[in-house]
Each structure stands twice: as structure tokens, then as C-alpha cells.
Design a protein around this nucleic acid. Structure first.
Lengths: 352, 352
DNA sequence: TTGAAAGCGCTAACAG
DNA sequence: CTGTTAGCGCTTTCAA
């Protein structure tokens, strides 16, 4: 850590030309071959690197995009962040990570803070949304792309997925593989994902073809393994009326599903023989788990990519109508629902 | 997304006072009660929020810290990032995530780019280090704190851990629990972690008390589950000379350890009965895995916290001698090495 | 093609 | 306590 850095003025002096010419020679157009040569040399001698702060002030552009979620440690968000970074970095944009807090109010405050101009845009995946937040997003001084609920009809660019439909896929898969007593293990239903999963399960259960004999619901306190273990214990401990035990659990995400498998084991039940378990998000954790987890992929990385691409379009001034992109859910069948993998198992299959 | 934002000048005009007074009333000291009142009102009416770009240029301070690693999706780095964010955010610093690439050259380039002044400092965990990188760090125009190798003797602030000693703890644990034929499953040995692990294993194997009858080493192509499965297959497939099979595997990280457990299962071996497996990093993945993974915690979050605290000290101008903080490794015994957990098992025990 | 100069929004030294 | 003014480093008109 040493010395203060050379400025453009110093490069100009060194090259014996004007400030404007120096700037042009370095970035802009309209400089002679000789000028470029001369300035480049001077810049190199001084180890000049342009100051982004001055540039930002002048250009009114930071080349930074914020990624804001409630929990930056959640594997799903990590995957999104990685995808967003992958898309933005080659375009010269930096990614700033931020946390929304878990209330709509704190998220709204974060969106309002965009007024300070520290980023050119924000990719936001709010855990909970309300009118105030929607309003703040629409009034934000920089583009905001929402990952989660489809807000296209509100005039907000968003990337959504049909997690409700995904729950339906899981339920149908369980019915098709002969399960009839199904437990639904959801997280907090007042969150965007919790609400969507609940809706999905209700829809599946209302379907004319829904052949289950028994249905139970348990709510975990949050979307974690520990909360899943606790709630799944209640689900699997046995029917209060002495009826037959559940033979399947549909979990609202992979972490809850892992919790359910642990709870099953603690109760002496084997997975998938006694009870089948499905997760959602198709995380690495689920892929490498034993038994590997049947899970509904919601394309976290695709959603991240999509959001980042929309953002690039927006910060490049290409306004257009707010658009909603959708990524379809996709069931990936693994060992937690069927004794043998659907496909022939090669060593390390399904593992990356 | 609307309109351009109000500036300090506009607030000043609205309040009918000077620019300087407005600035002072809002942040600085030395403004009368009445002035503060008046300016605040004007600011509120205009929905003014200060522009950080102008502020940064003037103050020569961005209130941003970079966190740079090779793979921002790696759970260990995610944990560090979360910890860093936790410490920095309350102090008003934003976290910018960056990737180093996996060569010393690309990392050096990244460190050099700090000359552009987009952050006030960088927390860096390089996968590979060379002299050029060390030099670049020392010459960086902003503070750099390195997580990984201890670089204190080089005059670089760093947070290290004794992963070599951690490998020793794992080896001793295996010997103490009766294992005698030990395989060492390492990742690429030309990386900082790979090198340290190798050193640790060599040291443990050279110890006078090292009671193993047989030792094998396998190198995975990288620190992933898939690479671990492949390399562990070689390790466990059986001794070329027809000798007894290994009864323990010391893996260089949790992902490789999970790979080893999968490979064991694919070969019809049970863990921990036939073969015990230890990991390193004590990740969530290992904690929830079945069997839960005995692992050496390297305190990723503590290291992140420590690095962030050092960084805060540095950006607050408190120079002082470069310091090396160290976080001790800590073996956490779970099911992958002993049939029963070390402690009585409560429901969901070891899961968070 | 080149140079002079303005100004992005802000803070702080200085004078009153 | 308040106002005037300079200037952080840069890009971009506008004239020459």
C-alpha cells in the first residue's frame, strides 16, 4: 500500500498535450495515431489508471449493480448471485451485495436508498412484498429487476418461476409412484415463496385427478434444515386419529426436505421405502445427499442470468415495456422418491 | 424509475441558505438549530438524498470494500462473505464481490485494478500465490487483507488458519479410533489449501506416534464432490498389491469427503464401519449429510469477521504494523468416523 | 485533430 | 454561525 495515484492531468503534462486530448487518446475517438502513442507512453510511465470516481461523477454512471436478498448465504441466492456476476462482469459491471432485511419496510428502505446513486441498477429478490415496496420499486431512480413474484402487470421488470406449478409436478410424481398419504411441509406462508408453494399445493389437491387418501400440512418456522426437522417430526410422528402414517412428504425447498429425511431417519423410517420426500430448488446439497433428493428445479441460475440480461438492457438505456420473463419448473427425479435412480446410475452420477 | 434527483444546490436554494450551510446542516457540525431545521425541511420536501458519487470524489473514499475469491459459489467463501458483510454493513460499507480467476497472474491483475479507486480496500483469498502477487499486494494503493496463507512476515495483513495442523487432528482422531490404513484425499497440490493440507499430512505421517500400517494418497482434480468421487474410487478400489483395503480417508475438504462417502457406498462399503471419513471446513453440507461428517472446522466465519475488522481498522487510517491473525482448527466429531455421535444425539442435533 | 473551459455533486478551508 | 470559493478527476462541448 503506497503513494497516491497519477491523474489524467499528470499524464497530460508528461505527454505535453492537453487534458482533453489525453482523455480522448485513452478512451474516446478522434485522436491521431501519434497522439495516442504519445499519451499511452506517458500513461504507462506513470502507471496511470483512470479514477472511476471522477468518471462516475462526470458520466453519472457507476458501473455497479446491486444484488439484494434477505439471506446472502442461502444456496439459492448464492447461485443467482454467481449467475448475475457471470453475466455482468464481462460487461464491466461490478456486483454489490446487499441485504433486504426480512420485512417489506426494510426492503422498501433499501430501494429508496438507491437515490444515493451508488449503483446503476438493482436486482432484487424480496422475501415479502407489499404495496409500499411495489410503489418504491416503480419510483426508484434506477432500474430494478425483481426475481420472484411476477410483477409485470404492475409495470415492473421481473423474472418469475412457476413454483406453484412445480409443487404440482412433485405431487403428481408422488401419486404416479403410488403414494397416497401426502404431507406438505411448507415454510412461513406469509413469504413470497411460502405463499406460492401453498397455492401450488392447494391447486394440486383440488385437481380432479388428485388420488390421495390423506393430506396433512406442517409449517416450518423458516426455510432451514433445523426447522424442517422439527416440523417434519410433527408430520411423521403418526396420525392423531391413529390412521396410517404418511408415505410421502412434499417439502417447500431442499433444506426442509433434508430436514424431513433426517426426521424420518430419527423415527426409524427409511426413505424412500417408508416415506418418499421431494424438495424444491435442486441445490447441490440435494444432489449429493444420500439418498439423493428428488427436487423441483426452479432454475436459480437461469433466473439470475435472465435478470442480469434484462438489467444490462435497462442500464444501456434500452427502456421498452417492462417485461416478465418466466423460467419453468422442472422435476428432477432421484433416490428420495424411487428406490433406484430413474436412469442407470453411473459413478458420481448427478454430482458436479 | 423516474425523474432526476435533487442536488444539494437545489436544497440550498429551497432553504434560502448557502451551499456550505446546507452541507453542514445535513452532515457536518457547526450549524444552528434553526439552520438544521430549515435545511432538513427543504431536503425532505425535495426528497433529497445525497449523491455518493460526488461525495466519494471529494472525500476520496468510496465506502466500499471488495471481497475477492476464485469461486464465489464455494460454501466456505460464501460463509466468509456473509461474515464480512455482517461486520462492514453496520459501519456503512458496501461489499463488492469479485473473482480472482485461478492463476496468480489474474489475481495480480485484479489487485492492480485497485488503482482505479473503486473500493477503499480489498479482502482477498487467493487460491494460488506467487512473488508477483505478493509484490502487487504490498504496492496496492488501498489496504488489502489476505485470508489464507500467513503473510505477516511479508508485511501483509493476513488472517490464517493452521489447516496443516487440522489435518493432523483428523489423522490422530482416526488413529485413536483404531484406524490403521489411511488414505489421504487431497485436491490440487499447487493451490494454497492443497499445499497446506499436503504439508499437514506429511507432518502427521512423520510423527513418531504415527501408528498406521498403510498409507495411500490420491489427488482430486479440484475441490469438488465429483472430483472426490473419482479420486476416492481409486483410493478405495483395493490395494494393487492385494493388501487389506483402507479403513479411513482423510479428505482435504468437505466436498471431497462427501465424494469419498459416495464412492464408498458405490463400492458397497459402509461408513464409518468399513471406512471412516473426515472432511475439512465444517460446512452445512457436512453437518446435515448422512452420515453426518466428522470435519475440521477452520472457522470460515471467524476468519471473515477477523479480516473485516482488520480492514475497518485500516480504512479508518489506523495503520500500525501489518498483523497476522490466526484462527485455530477444531475437529468436530460426527457419524462419519464413529458409529454413534460423540454426544447423545438429540433430534436434529448438529443441524442449524 | 487539438486545446480551453465548463461542470458532474459534494466537502472543507477560509473569511467574515 | 454563515457564506464564498476552490477543487476532487474526469468527459465533453465548443472554438480554433
Amino acid at each position: 500500500m503506497t503513494s497516491s495515484r497519477a491523474t489524467l492531468i499528470q499524464v497530460a503534462e508528461r505527454a505535453g498535450v492537453s487534458l482533453a486530448s489525453t482523455s480522448r487518446a485513452l478512451h474516446g475517438s478522434g485522436a491521431s495515431e501519434a497522439m495516442v502513442e504519445r499519451v499511452r507512453a506517458a500513461a504507462a510511465e506513470l502507471g496511470y489508471s483512470p479514477d472511476v470516481t471522477g468518471r462516475s461523477l462526470r458520466l453519472r454512471k457507476t458501473f455497479q449493480i446491486a444484488f439484494a436478498v434477505a439471506d446472502i448465504g442461502n444456496p439459492v441466492y448464492v447461485e443467482m448471485m454467481t449467475a448475475i456476476h457471470e453475466v455482468l462482469a464481462p460487461h464491466g459491471y461490478r456486483v454489490v451485495v446487499m441485504t433486504t432485511g426480512d420485512t417489506p419496510a426494510s426492503t422498501t428502505e433499501l430501494v429508496r436508498s438507491l437515490g444515493s446513486g451508488f449503483v446503476d441498477g438493482m436486482v432484487l429478490s424480496p422475501l415479502r412484498t407489499d404495496d409500499g415496496l411495489v410503489r418504491a420499486i416503480k419510483q426508484a431512480p434506477v432500474p430494478v429487476v425483481v426475481i420472484g413474484r411476477s410483477l409485470g402487470d404492475q409495470g415492473i421488470d421481473s423474472v418469475s418461476t412457476d413454483s406453484a406449478g412445480g409443487i404440482g409436478q412433485a405431487v403428481r410424481h408422488l401419486l404416479e409412484t403410488g403414494r397416497r398419504r401426502i404431507g406438505f411441509l411448507n415454510g412461513p406462508p406469509d413469504t413470497t415463496p411460502g405463499e406460492a408453494r401453498r397455492r401450488g399445493f392447494d391447486a394440486a389437491a383440488s385437481d380432479p385427478g388428485f388420488a390421495a387418501e390423506r393430506v396433512e400440512v406442517a409449517l416450518a418456522e423458516d426455510f432451514t434444515v433445523a426447522a424442517g426437522v422439527a416440523a417434519a417430526h410433527r408430520l411423521l410422528a403418526g396420525a392423531p386419529d391413529g390412521g396410517a402414517r404418511l408415505d410421502a412428504v412434499v417439502a417447500a425447498n431442499d433444506l426442509l426436505a433434508i430436514g424431513a429425511i433426517r426426521a424420518a431417519r430419527e423415527l426409524g423410517l427409511s426413505v424412500p421405502e417408508d416415506v418418499a420426500v421431494t424438495g424444491m430448488d435442486d441445490t447441490e446439497l440435494g444432489r449429493v445427499f444420500q439418498p439423493s433428493l428428488t427436487s423441483v428445479s426452479l432454475g436459480s441460475d437461469e433466473r439470475g442470468h435472465a435478470a442480469a440480461r434484462i438489467m444490462l438492457r435497462l442500464v444501456d438505456g434500452d427502456a421498452g415495456e417492462p417485461q416478465t420473463t418466466s423460467v419453468g419448473p422442472r422435476l428432477v427425479v432421484r433416490e428420495s422418491t424411487v428406490p433406484r435412480p430413474a436412469r442407470a446410475s453411473a459413478p458420481g452420477e448427478g454430482v458436479r
